[in-house]
Design a protein around this nucleic acid. Sequence first.
DNA 1: AATATTGTTCAGCA
DNA 2: GTGCTGAACAATAT
Length: 265
Amino acid sequence: MPELPDVQVFKQYVDSTSLHQTIRKIDLRSPELLGDVSAEELKQHLLDHSIHASRRHGKYLFLRLDNSASVVLHFGMTGFPVYFLNQESAPDHIRLLLTFSSGYYLAYDCRRKLGLIDLAGNEQDFIDSKELGIDAFSEHFTYKTLKDLLKNKKGSIKSTLMNQKIIAGIGNIYSDEILFQSGIHPKSCAGALDDSRLKHLYNEIKRVFQQSIQSLASTRAFPKEFLLPNREPGAECPLCGGNIVKQTISSRSSYFCNQHQTDIS
DNA sequence: AATATTGTTCAGCA
DNA sequence: GTGCTGAACAATAT
């Protein structure tokens, strides 16, 4: 379930393995994942070129090539990148496979085919075409930005946080985590949160993402006071001892504490 | 075998 | 057009 922290870790992974290597071969095994680019065009841009930088916006990862175009990857529910040398280490559902001149491979694996492989001449134009909002981990995402974005919003705070056109990067899992840490009920009206709650929310977005990126990148051990390891109905709330309950909110299953996330504003 | 899973997109409604 | 909700879709595990 790659949301912002997962994709940030993918970015770090690609940065530390795959930059500045000439691509000798490209094997597109699931062309149905292509966006507005043809297989031919993609191959043309990749072959004999290299990735010289990467950038993440929300849940999208851009691999910037040395010819100024960028490969765009979206990981859907089940996607991830794998860098490997021996075939025994190859993942099971490779959709795109790059072979570097070093002999190493970079695979885009996606068990369920709910991802996207695309090519962007200009990354900002791509972001605009998807109407993506500001990245939730960007330094330009300030408290004031959040306050302005939520002002006058009529929907629940959960569905608002998950709306990629308002803020990019937050999905079902992390909206639950952020609201849990902020002590805000997921059904609270987004536009009705007072300054104190908004401040909490802002701080927790930053803190949860920073902590999660750290946990995913190293030990994968999330802090035990996170909701994530306790995300099942009937579990004991690690913050207050209440009960974790499951409820469908904006047609997604949400988990929250029935004790410290009770009041709906 | 039916159900749950998630991000995106789109139909439908006020 | 705008803002919002809910459902469809992909493929697989349980």
